[in-house]
Amino acid sequence: MTPALLGALIEARAHRRPAVLATRLADGSQHLLVEPVGRGMVEMDPRLLDAARTAVRTDRSGTVMLADEEWFLQVHLPAPRLLLVGAVHVAQALAPLAGAVGLAVSVIDPRQGFATEERFPGIPLLRSWPDEALATLGIDSRTAVVTLSHEARLDDPALDAALASEAFYVGALGSRKTQAARRERLRAMGHGEAAIARLHGPVGLAIGAVGPQEIALSIVSELVAVRRGAALGTRLPAP
């Protein structure tokens, strides 16, 4: 690998651009393909381009055989995002923990004094209303949304947007009792049972968490379970 190629790969990752590093295993010669894959790569074997596109689409690194040559395709996709609504104490514990397992965390809270650099050092902060912030950020299938504020005026618009999106995880902090009321409000907003069944509420795995740090751990655990398709990440339909 050349330092220029390494620099380009680091830059693509820093800018959240999908990339594939293709390495011919026999001699180590390499191509770096940065999304949109294939742009300007006219001299490349089109079969390698196709394989790279498939690797990005399926998020699977692996080895492919092309004309008796073995190529390793290393997929570099942007880190999945975790958008936290409510810059509360649980969010302070959750942000670094989620970052440690590879999630790109942002915290949303328009209230004075909550989403501050002092409380969330190094975490991207959006001091705007959740529906505006989520519309700006755009919720895709590599995004998780968790509401933590306990305030319906903040949480509900965020859940409204999240349940209408392709978010891979939607969770709401709150007791079983408040969850029932929340589900009723979401029904009143026009969400069907299939959408409401996607809501993880109470949020997190039931590990008997006490306090913000343990609640954060239970949420991160459930996020991992859902992301990796583990049985623990699947919930029975809510009552």
């Binding site: 620099g7 380009a8 680091i10 830059e11 820093a14 880190a79 397992v101 590879g102 790109a104 991207p124």
Partner: peptide, 15 residues
Amino acid sequence: IEPAFAAGTRAASAA
């Protein structure tokens, strides 16, 4: 493309 090792790579993801 400049080898761009900058603060940006610190980003939120440490994976």
